[in-house]
Design a protein around this nucleic acid. Structure first.
Lengths: 152, 152
DNA sequence: TTCGATTTGTAGCCTCGGCTACAATTAGGC
DNA sequence: GCCTAATTGTAGCCGAGGCTACAAATCGAA
């Protein structure tokens, strides 16, 4: 059944079938989800090193609410991706790439919380929701948030 | 399923160590992610039935940008969860529960897009980001959005 | 009606991110 | 210094959600 012709308001890649646009959005959301966990770990490891002096797997696990085995497995993934390093039975450290990821994740997190609060979301709800939202906020949207908050 | 907080596998804050709060937030984000796919499917199926008269697996797959096999497998999960029905080689339909989920997902999606646009995010970026964000917006935050947009 | 193209479904494989159970190592109390 | 407790790491299981390849059913045209 041929559907009626739609029109696009946005240029980008010339003339794709209309549903490709939608598919592209879902794909974006999926890839964002794939990096979400890495961002959470990087941010947390950075925090722990800053406040505790070191980032130990059990602390990471407790903070994230997962078993230590899960945390260690995820840390292994961070290492595979070149974001962290660690030696056997020693703490975890971030590579420069990991630090950068953590810094950007933290900045994004704060901006999202502040934006939510600014539009009237209660602080606690903002903190909770931001945890899931932050990974899906594009740079463009982030800039708009900063502008809205008067930090352009 | 709705994110009812009536049953709690996780204790409330206040009488817990400080890091439990953080763990609780991460857990919320994880469970939200678990229902995200179901919401996307329900919303899309509802849309397709509305605009095309039927929801066929291949159309669903194309819109979501996944293989038809993946779509069919996910549809099977929707059926397991009591959100959809289908007979062999026939289209997919939503149960009342599925319809409800779709309706709420769509309303939330629109509210998120509108809120983003209202704070200055370009339309196209808002559409893209909302796809990932919508699943992590709590009812409380949603109400704040509605109030902000003057639709309280 | 028959036959090929399309659609739908099945089988099997992969990675990821949970988990428990168990093993190895380190750290602390005595 | 030694022995126990805590920590760290490993193995193996599970389900979710991707994929390809193949099989079965339906549709449509000749």
């Amino acid at each position: 059944m041929p559907k009626s012709k739609s029109y696009k308001l946005v240029a980008e890649p010339a003339d794709l079938p209309p549903e490709a646009d939608q598919a592209h959005r879902f794909e974006k959301a999926r890839t964002a989800q794939a990096t979400a966990l890495l961002e959470d770990y990087a941010e947390l490891i950075s925090d722990l090193i800053g406040t505790e002096g070191e980032a130990r797997p059990t602390d990471i696990a407790r903070r994230l609410g997962v078993s230590h085995a899960t945390a260690i497995k995820s840390i292994a993934r961070l290492k595979r991706e070149g974001l962290a390093t660690s030696k056997l039975y020693r703490g975890v450290f971030l590579t420069p790439a990991g630090e950068m990821l953590a810094r950007r994740a933290r900045a994004r997190h704060r901006l999202v919380v502040d934006l939510l609060v600014a539009v009237g979301v209660p602080q606690e709800a903002a903190e909770v929701d931001a945890e899931g939202i932050e990974h899906h906020v594009s740079d463009e949207t982030l800039r708009a948030f900063a502008t809205y908050l008067g930090r352009a």
